[in-house]
């Protein structure tokens, strides 16, 4: 039998199998922690930082990513404190600024309470969440894609930039890429990037009915565990 541990997330006591991550446990109980780089079934790397929570220990709280935090007996987790909300909003803003041309990213930002983006838009088309790379390596064992370079020059590429022949053509990298969902109004023109925010009413609903799913585009295309339920 699987060993179960008991922990508290946002005041509710939940039981989860030993070894699962806090994020998975929370999602299983319908507690929505925004997440982006987490893909069910793959190893989590904590790339997007959106899933941050407060882990309270001996009266002190530490902020960490819940997808890389495994459940422990008697853990106390808070997912929605003011501090977390503020940090999360900032992270979401940075992600939108990096790559505004994605419905998934935009929805995610609205879910995190971003109303305006204070950073200059950089218009990259990759947020380096590593979903494609991890799917390619872990699920398909194809190892066609990988992160090349480091620091600000890090990017996803084939080996030598041209070894497409290693690819198994499974298309997972496209399916799992948050950038593959264009915003409702189509791709934005350079210089006119903005936060769409058309679905803000949904977000308001989510704010009032705490824990309600906003059914973000990300969940639909990317198998957020909540959509699967």
């Amino acid at each position: 039998m699987q060993q179960q541990v008991t922990l508290t997330i946002d005041g509710s006591t939940i039981r989860a199998a030993r070894g699962t991550s806090v994020l998975e446990a929370a999602l299983g109980y319908g507690i929505c922690i925004p997440h982006l780089c987490h893909v069910p079934g793959l190893k989590d790397t904590g790339a997007c930082r959106l899933c941050i929570v407060e882990n309270v220990q001996n009266g002190r709280s530490r902020v960490t990513t819940s997808c890389t935090l495994t459940v422990q007996e008697g853990m106390v987790i808070r997912t929605n404190t003011e501090n977390i909300k503020r940090l999360r909003r900032n992270i979401a803003e940075l992600i939108v600024a990096e790559a505004p041309n994605s419905r998934a990213v935009q929805d995610m930002a609205v879910r995190c309470g971003v109303r305006e983006v204070r950073y200059p838009f950089r218009r990259e088309n990759c947020i380096q969440c590593g979903r494609c790379v991890r799917y390619c390596t872990e699920m398909w064992r194809a190892n066609a894609l990988g992160f090349i370079g480091r620091g600000k020059d890090r990017k996803v590429d084939f080996a030598f930039g041209n070894r497409r022949d290693i690819c198994k053509k499974c298309q997972s990298c496209v399916i799992y890429c948050p950038m593959s969902v264009t915003p409702c109004g189509g791709p934005m023109k350079p210089g006119e990037e903005k936060l769409c925010g058309k679905c803000e009413s949904v977000e308001l609903m989510a704010e009032n009915a705490y824990g309600a799913c906003v059914h973000c585009e990300l969940g639909k295309g990317f198998q957020c565990s909540r959509h699967a339920m």
């Binding site: 390596t137 190892n143 990988g146 370079g149 084939f158 030598f160 290693i166």
Partner: peptide
């Protein structure tokens, strides 16, 4: 050389290239 190393050590080519680039 990278391809031969990948074959010789039994590592995906991607991994070799990634390390060499890093």
């Amino acid at each position: 050389a990278m391809e031969q190393v990948a074959g010789g050590l039994g590592i995906p080519l991607m991994e070799v290239y990634r390390v060499a680039c890093f």
